[in-house]
Each structure stands twice: as C-alpha cells, then as structure tokens.
Nucleic acid binder design. Sequence first.
DNA 1: AATTGTGAAACACTTCACAGCC
DNA 2: GGCTGTGAAGTGTTTCACAATT
Lengths: 225, 225
Amino acid sequence: MRSGRGARSGRVPDAAVRRLPVYLRVLEDLRQREIDIVSSAELARRTGFSSEQIRKDLTYFGAFGTRGVGYRTETLSIQLREILGLDREVPAALVGAGNLGTALARYNILRHRDVRIVGIFDNDPQKVGTSIEGVPILATDDLEKVVPEQGIRMAVITVPAEAAQEMASRLVQVGVEAILNFSPTQLRVPPGVYVQNIDLSIELRSLAYYVSAGRRQEDMGSTRG
Amino acid sequence: MRSGRGARSGRVPDAAVRRLPVYLRVLEDLRQREIDIVSSAELARRTGFSSEQIRKDLTYFGAFGTRGVGYRTETLSIQLREILGLDREVPAALVGAGNLGTALARYNILRHRDVRIVGIFDNDPQKVGTSIEGVPILATDDLEKVVPEQGIRMAVITVPAEAAQEMASRLVQVGVEAILNFSPTQLRVPPGVYVQNIDLSIELRSLAYYVSAGRRQEDMGSTRG
DNA sequence: AATTGTGAAACACTTCACAGCC
DNA sequence: GGCTGTGAAGTGTTTCACAATT
C-alpha cells in the first residue's frame, strides 16, 4: 500500500513531487559520467516517464531548461536538490532495528549523504548499545531526547504493527513531520504530518493480481501487450 | 519511486487494485477477532480510505454487501482473495539475498502462505547452499530451470542496479509476468509484463520534500493542517 | 532544427448525493 | 433507519499540440 497524507501546499501535484527524486537519480548518474546536457526525451527514456510529463513537472518549480538545447545536468540536479530540501543534510530517525530496519540503515548510511539516518532506536536490550555501520542503536526511551537534539524531522518506522502507533505518536510529539511507515497498520497522526506507507506484504499481494489477471485473460482467449 | 506498467484489462483502476490487499488485511484481522459484519465506514476508519472509495472499489468486481447491514467479513475476504488470485498459493522467486532480500524473505516466509517465496537466487558462492528460513539459496544459473519447474510467475528483484536488467530479462524469458523491483533502475520489459518499482532512496528523498515544504511554509508565516 | 514551456483537451480517479434495499 | 451501490459532478493528472526560444 502507498498513500500520502498531510499538509500540501496545493499547487504542486503530489505525483510530480514523487517523481523528482527519480529525475535526480538519473541526473546524478549522467553527471558522474560527465554528460553535461540532457533532453527531456532522454530523461524519459531513462526514467520511464513521458517527456511531456517531465517538462511539466519541472515547470511547477520554474524554467530550468534551454529551448532547442535541453537541461544542464549540473544545474538541474542542484535545483532539484534544493527543491527537495536536499541541499543540506537531512537527519532522520530509524525506529526498529529488525531485519528490514537493519537493511534500510545499511543501505542508506552507505549510499547517501543527503538523507542521513543519525539515530536508530530499538527496544531489544540485546541490540541497544550495538551499532549499524557506525550509527549506535539507542533505547526507544532516548527518542524524546535525541530527536529534538539532532533536529530530526523525518522518521522511518519498521517496528511491528502493535508498536507502530505508539512510536509514531511519540515521534510526532517531539517534532517529526514526515514518516515512512513500513508497519502493516494505519497510523493516526495530526494534520500537517505526512505519512507514506509501504507495506511489503501488500505489494506482493497486489502483484499477484497482475499475474492472475494475465491468466484470466489467457483463459478468455484475449491477447495481451 | 513507484509506477506500474504492463497489461491492464482497462476497466479496473490500478489504484483500486492496489487498495484491495489493504481491505483484505483489515478483514482478516476482523475475522480473527470474530467480527462477522463490517460497514464501509468502519473499513474506512481502519484503512484511512474513504467509505465511498471502498464501496466503489468493491463494485468494480461485484456487489458483495447487504444494504442496511454491511459486508460479511468472511465472505468479503474470500472474494478478495479470489479477485487477487490468492485463493491458491502463488509461488514467487526472490533474486538477490543481500540485506534487503534476506529481510523480505524472512518476513514473507514466516508470515504468509499465499504469496510464497519458493526460490531464492544469488550469485555469491558463500551464500549459495545456505538457506533462509528453510528456503535454499540457489545460484542464479539455476533460475532457468527452477522458475518453470515451480510454476513461478512473479519475482522480487533486490540485486544491485547493474545486475537488475539482466535478471529481469532472464526471469521474463522463463515466464515471469510481474516483478517487484527494489533496484534503483528502470527495467525494460516486454509489453504484458507488470513492473512495480520501490526505490527506498527515492522514498526517503521525496519524504524530505514534505519536511522542507513545511519549513518553507512556516517561513512564509502560513498555517498548516 | 531542435527542444523547452504551456494552455487546452483528454483521461483517471475521487467525492457527492441519493436511490434502492434490508 | 441504516448502509450499500452508483450515476453524476468534481478534482487531479497526463497527454496533446504548438508557440516560443535558442
């Protein structure tokens, strides 16, 4: 499942915001390969979105390209970083250091310097005091101290469903405004707090629809593609 | 990032299909607690979607409720399983047994009996021959044999970006029709194959927009909520 | 000649409002 | 009276088509 909710400025489609990091990923890759200019058509090829959509998405924030030429990869990636708020390091909390949480922490800490997991919280006394890639695992009791101290505004929740609501409430209490929720439960948060849900079971189950839909269509003798 | 693509029957909104497993999760929970009847309003409360949306989503597939009463949790959950193709066990492959793949495999194997990871593939010789929760890790070379043998039609890809396209192509070659892609790359697949992308870096980065958007609005003196 | 930026049209999805049924 | 099912209205998003610019 996936659904966002919370304060929205109104003008910029949510769907567009969610595509920006995809453009950024491609732009960074191009930059690294010293490709200075890219067209919306080329970005389309590399992202899977249409070139019109890419151009329109970008114009919600300004005019970044040069007609007849394209976009400078350096300029555009800097602009996108700024729009996303990634022009400075964004500290984040991870709550739940199970398999999934650990995988996320490793992945994030090693790869990126923009959104940075600076606090990992878990209730398991066996885990508290250990660390993941140099970031110490703290007791959840420390959350109220560490989150404000580190200026943390976003959090990733990977605790079991039963514990998720309490953690969310406590995080919001101390200033968290955006939550990436991997627990299979609907979090209740005050207005103004943005929640993005990713439930892996639900992803797998909805995928099943498309394989069985394929089967059904075959049974009916229709063609696909 | 998230985007589906591939064969669609046309009539049923993608967005609706993606909500069905959420309804199913709640229905299963209610059933377990021996609650026999539920209204769309109550489902709305528990899922975060509106009651009208829930009713409309369900009517794409038929009329499952009783006016003035509600929906029988047992009947509806059985119907939803059938619609999703979960009325029989759905075998799936997992390609990539790194941190994320291992977390997913554990989670899935322990919790669910509907979509079932029956084959785990990895190239690391240190991992091949070991197992995760009883499911053996095989060499990717075995993929062409095992996928058809086990009737696998869906796969989860958690390999690095460089290897993802090759794995996807090989999976499709031997009959995979739906892919859950965690690698940060755009997979090229033939028409009729459904790809759902989840890129965790991109989720974190788009989340950053909402915390910094909040900051920007505050700076402008507007209220939120 | 090429490619962006953008109103307008088309399409998709959600919400409204109420008829229909228990 | 209460709740589902559903056309119609409303909103959001994507695509079209072309003028503007280099």
